[in-house]
Amino acid sequence: MRSSRRRHPLLVPVLLCACAVLVAPPTAAEGDSGGTGLSGAPGYSARVVALYEEAAVATQQYELGRSEAEAQRAQAQRLEKLLVREREQIAVLHEDLGRIARARYREGGGLPYTVQLLLADSPEELMRGHRVVRQANLAVDKAVSRSRRAEARLAADEKQAVAEWRKLQRRNADLAETKRAIEKKLEDALWMLQGQADASAAAGACPGATRLGQPPTGTQRAWVAPVEGYVLSAGFGSGGARWANRHTGQDFAVPVGTPVRAVGAGQVVRVSCGGAFGLQIVIRHPDGYYTQYAHLASLAVDPGEQVATGQWIGQAGTTGNSTGPHLHFEVRITPELGSGIDPVPWLLKHGVDL
């Protein structure tokens, strides 16, 4: 009935999937407690929803900004590669200039024209030498021009690269601030939700069903795991000082607010909020088995309601006999405690490998 894991910090990437939340007006959910329902302070649920919606908007902005930052990073990396190639090209041009200068020196290109005329054996030799010198001068001029253009491009590209990196640094600073705001909003919303759940469990009276926005696409599978992004903690039959006998289910360590899914289609036969299990739901499936979802922070279904495979039926929490946020999941042959079987092989038999 509890996880051996201590309460741990919120894991934001997992919690972001809980941002899309729609809440119906509170209604009394019937259950084992027989209470008349506990709705909390006026506007409490609305405040939780508002925080979720603000976090959802901030998350969208964060994702957009992160995509833009990644694009800027890629552009800066392309510019860096271009700078490397241009530096290599300029080095080659400098080598060419040095080679041409040395050749001109060896061929007398550095002598005054009058001296070349006196040293020539014939007019033809002089003309040939003149053509060689003219061609060498043209080659030098072209090489110098190419080198200057390459250096100008290099300077411009370096300036652009610096500007892009500075823009990226500013964007990253903005994203970090946005992320901190998201974490704070989620933490406030989720622990407010847990606080309401604790009050309900203590009073033994269930709050109204908080309708969760469902995943965008329905599952095509007949059976699924009860949560996503989990770590398996206490298993079926394990011992522990907080249990009267042996552990009667499988625990999934997840943050508060993680959507809890119906593992298969069925009917909600029990919603209760007091005792060791805290806020809990029991579903009867067509094959005669029952599944239990305990220690919840919110309820999203009412007794008698038909649910589909993968439908979000509540949010994980740490109500009741629990030492940290997790989902306690059981498979039973009756709706009552004490008729449980090991959930892991049962789920595996239904095609769900945890």
Rank of each mutant, 00 (worst) to 15 (best):
A71D: 12
A181K: 15
A308V: 04
G98Q: 08
E177V: 15
A234T: 15
R180Q: 11
S238K: 11
A120L: 03
E330D: 05
D342L: 06
R146F: 00
Q77T: 12
V260H: 05
S298H: 12
T114I: 06
R106Y: 09
G237L: 03
K179W: 02
G275R: 08
G275C: 08
T36L: 15
I182T: 10
R2C: 00
R242Q: 12
G240D: 05
V268N: 02
G195N: 09
I283H: 08
A205D: 07
H94W: 00
L111K: 14
A253W: 09
P345N: 12
L10C: 06
T219P: 02
S322I: 03
G208Q: 12
E54V: 06
G98N: 11
A222P: 05
Y293L: 08
L193N: 13
H285R: 15
A139S: 07
A197I: 00
R284V: 13
V21Q: 03
G195A: 10
S238R: 11
D157V: 10
D32K: 12
A265H: 09
A199N: 12
A101I: 01
A56G: 10
Y293G: 03
A55S: 13
R134H: 01
R106Q: 15
H328F: 09
G229Q: 03
R99M: 03
S3F: 00
R246F: 04
L126C: 11
G98P: 06
P255L: 02
A50L: 02
Q280E: 14
Q280A: 14
G340C: 15
K179S: 15
S322R: 02
A202V: 04
E151N: 00
A297K: 06
F236H: 08
G340I: 12
A46I: 07
G239K: 11
A56I: 06
D157M: 09
D121Y: 06
A50T: 10
T36E: 04
T318H: 12
E336C: 03
T258H: 14
G37F: 08
H130Q: 11
G37R: 00
T217R: 03
D157F: 13
E125T: 07
R47E: 13
A244R: 02
E124P: 08
V271A: 04
A308F: 01
C17M: 02
D121S: 15
Q194G: 10
L118N: 07
G109Q: 04
G229P: 06
G204S: 07
D251T: 08
A91L: 00
R47I: 03
V14Q: 07
R99C: 01
D198V: 12
A316I: 03
E63L: 14
G109S: 04
V344G: 09
G208L: 14
P325E: 09
V301R: 08
A163V: 13
